[in-house]
Amino acid sequence: MDPCDILNVRYHFGGQFVWMGPNLDYVGGDEAMSQIERDKLSLPELKGFLGDHVPVKQSMKIYFLLPGRELVDGLFFLCDDAGCMKMSECITEGGIADVYVENTRK
């Protein structure tokens, strides 16, 4: 398979967003990598791969960090397939999409 047909996704999960002065940080948790075929990319597919690393809950919110941006101003909420396609378009061959998972309920 051609490398440009694959989207590398780094999941950040199990932590929480914390304000540290004017900056936003993601504290604690774990990271895991997945490779997703771009032509199959959708929100259910993204959650399916997340499920390989952590139990997926309905209450989880999933964000993509826009390349070159900081957490404080670069998080894009992934709520549908169109958002996933935007994420794919932002990441060039060999790049990594950083996806952050927020648990809104304990």
Rank of each mutant, 00 (worst) to 15 (best):
G95Y: 00
M87F: 02
P3A: 03
S59E: 15
K47A: 02
M33Q: 15
S34T: 10
H12G: 03
D98A: 03
E31R: 13
E102F: 07
Y100F: 02
G21C: 02
E31F: 02
H12V: 00
P44D: 10
G94F: 07
M1D: 14
L46T: 04
N103S: 13
W19K: 14
F49Q: 12
G95A: 11
N8C: 10
R105D: 10
W19Q: 14
K47L: 15
T104S: 05
L75T: 06
K61I: 08
Q35V: 06
G48N: 13
A82G: 05
N23A: 12
G14M: 07
L24S: 06
L65P: 10
D2Q: 11
D73A: 00
E45T: 12
M87R: 08
P55A: 04
K57E: 13
L43V: 05
V9L: 04
K106H: 12
M60F: 14
I6S: 09
F64A: 06
M87C: 08
R38C: 01
W19C: 11
W19S: 13
P67I: 00
Q35F: 09
T92Q: 11
P55R: 06
E70Y: 13
E93Q: 12
K47C: 03
A82P: 02
E93T: 11
G21P: 02
E102G: 02
V72Q: 12
D81L: 02
Q16L: 08
G68H: 06
A82D: 13
L43E: 13
G48H: 13
F76M: 13
E37K: 13
G21H: 04
K86L: 02
K106Y: 10
V99Y: 00
M60G: 04
G28R: 08
D5V: 05
G74H: 02
L50K: 03
K47P: 00
G28D: 06
N103T: 12
H12S: 09
Q58R: 13
E70S: 14
G74F: 01
C4G: 07
V72T: 15
Y26R: 14
R105N: 11
Y11D: 00
R69V: 04
E45K: 15
